[in-house]
Design a protein around this nucleic acid. Structure first.
Lengths: 234, 234
DNA sequence: CCCCGGAATTGACCTGGATCAATTTTGCGC
DNA sequence: GCGCAAAATTGATCCAGGTCAATTCCGGGG
């Protein structure tokens, strides 16, 4: 629990309070759903181990992958406004989560101000990420950006940022990035030829992080290299 | 103030409190900036009259329009997590806004629980909208979805949902929808031929809302027609 | 009223990535 | 270990939407 993203910066006793309202949902096996679009929205879910994919099915039956959630990340935030889940969440591997009942969480934020800011910060970041993803970029930029994002999230978990084990198949990456699986495959091949990565199935080693950054910079939320930002203010 | 989206559902005295922390920023003329990417994030901005566009400039100097904000809508939410604005906000027409200093707003949410839920709801909705926009759809679907979204937002303001006066040029719509301006132009022409809309420059009349819905349904946040949702739960 | 410059439209052509079509590869149940 | 279905790769072809290039259409200033 202590390393879920939400409690960052909370005091020990506040974390205690948070822990008192969550309840762990035992292992969900790959392919099982945590919640579904249209379900009554009751809780946010923090991934403890494993990985989730969220997706929608549009009116023509096409699947759209909205995102992936690895350990330490939160899913379900988009259900708040309508009291109804806006997407489906399915486990990509055996996954365990903490359910954070939303009404109790909201209550708790009144007692624990740090929790409230943290939730707002998480949502704000998610919003930024989603807006970035909605912008126009070449297939190459999008895949590079995706790998960089995963790398950073792995690093935050204490894992080697250059050794990625993708929890999802190409098809899901493709849908998430609005590309065809064939395009993903060809891009991996090209990145490999150019010495940027070594990719074999779901094992991806990043060989040239800088080059990847140059390609995916336009999509990198955490990129601080932009000279228009004044570093002295940081 | 009373018809800004944020206070919806607040008691009179709570609204009083909210009003006490906001300060109005006199008319911003078309083309003037309200805030810029990289600026220290201090406040959220609620549009009173007029319209804003938010956008980023990527590492290659390309502009990406993130969204439009008409009267009653909030801008700046994506700046919360980094204490720095993540985008630029510019007036599309003469515009007046209320600045909601964020630290005081956060404080106030502790006293006014309804305000806290409302902020979460607004962010959650924004997140859903952005995620929808990030999905893959044809140019036709995206423009139809955009017009529907604008229509609904106009309706919420009490305006005729079929008589839209677009505050933005084609170029901005194009960038927002990841299309070329020429494509927007051709789509308007096609929609016109098919009797869906009558569009002349920035005046757009929606002639066949149902047909537009059939095209843009996949992107319509408020669409309740999906049979997979159980209406009895609503 | 006329002129100017940006916005919009329209047409011709091009291309990045999709689609279609085979093969491989490989994880997994038996 | 074998068989098989799903995942991934690779090649050939196609097309939605982009790009380039003229016009045309206005709105505003003098």
């Amino acid at each position: 629990m202590r390393d879920l993203c939400l409690p960052l910066g909370l005091e020990a006793d506040d974390m205690q309070k948070l822990e008192s309202i969550v309840h762990t949902r035992g292992p969900i096996r790959a392919g099982e759903h945590l919640f579904r679009e249209g379900d009554s929205f009751q809780a946010l879910y923090a991934v403890k181990t494993g990985a989730l994919k969220t997706y929608t099915i549009d009116s023509q039956g096409r699947e759209h992958v909205l995102g992936f959630h690895i350990a330490g990340e939160l899913a379900g935030l988009d259900g708040i406004y309508s009291s109804r889940n806006r997407c489906n969440a399915v486990a990509l591997q055996t996954t365990s989560v903490c359910a954070l009942p939303f009404s109790r969480l909201e209550q708790l934020t009144r007692e624990v101000p740090g929790l409230q800011s943290q939730i707002l910060r998480v949502m704000s970041r998610e919003l930024s990420a989603s807006a970035q993803l909605a912008t126009e970029h070449s297939a190459e930029e999008r895949l590079a950006g995706f790998l960089l994002s995963l790398s950073r999230r792995y690093a935050r978990r204490g894992l080697d940022p250059c050794m990625l084990t993708l929890p999802m198949p190409r098809r899901d990456i493709a849908s998430h990035l609005r590309l065809a699986t064939e395009t993903i495959s060809r891009l991996f091949a090209r990145f490999q030829d150019e010495g940027l990565v070594a990719a074999r199935r779901r094992e991806v080693r990043i060989l040239d992080m800088d080059a990847l950054r140059r390609i995916g910079a336009a999509l990198d939320l955490d990129d601080d290299s932009d000279p228009r930002h004044n570093p002295s203010l940081r």
